[in-house]
Amino acid sequence: MKKREFKPLSVLYACLAYTFLYLPIIVVIVFSFNTSKRNITFEGFTFEWYAEMLENEQLMQSFYNTLIVAFVSTAISVFIGTLCAVGLHRFEFKLKQLISDSLYIPIVIPELVMGIGLLVFFSSINVETSIYTLIISHVTFSMPFVVITVRSRIAGFDKSIEEAARDLGANELSTFMRVTLPMIAPGVVSGGMLALTLSLDDVVVSYFTAGPDSTTLPLKILGMVKKGVSPDVNALSTLMIVGTIAVMVFSQLIQRKMEKKNG
């Protein structure tokens, strides 16, 4: 290829773009170590807000809720989503196309409408919003992503290997556990990671389906910003940022390793 001209310009542009993306995150982190209560200028370094954060029960509760909802909803999504993906790959039946297509509905309909739909649904069957309704709603929007991710992984997968296992006398369960699952593992992991981040990031659907005792951290921040936030929110946010980045980088590494292994 011909020589790349204007390279310094590209580098400059990329730097500016990434600064734009990361600046607010860095600001949140920096101010979590600031001695001043007001997020205006950096006055000195302290861990005070981290101690205060641990004392703030409401804040910690919202943090635990966030984690519980994320992990439980991911587990459910991965479980039923993977089964569905494998089933859709293996069987041919009348409604298959309809089911495959309707998996795209939760992905394309506006989150706002989904949140409202679930709110009126729960209220019409007289179920009060709580952490359970929150988990249900998170599964609803993340499970289709699991199915689609896993399906794209199985797409090039030779059905005869599973059939061979069954012909050799393996039952359904052991075929699934010993043959199918190891082959689709990278897809399951990335689907699960996607479900986890979607859940951790969700504001809109949670806004309508969380009960008064089950607010998540994002909802808590949304509620607090209007009254002015104290830096213990920065501290907790910093932990969440570090945690999210660690999990994602780690999962990328695992995935790459698995893909290398499986080719």
Binding site: L21, P24, I25, V27, V28, R38, P218, I221, S237, T244
Partner: peptide, 22 residues
């Protein structure tokens, strides 16, 4: 950044854009 919760990131913007902000 897209994996990190939007509220946290928007909160960062609020900190910067305020009248007495950075």
């Amino acid at each position: 950044p897209f994996w990190i919760n939007s509220m946290i990131r928007l909160y960062g913007w609020m900190t910067m854009l305020r009248t007495e902000g950075i």
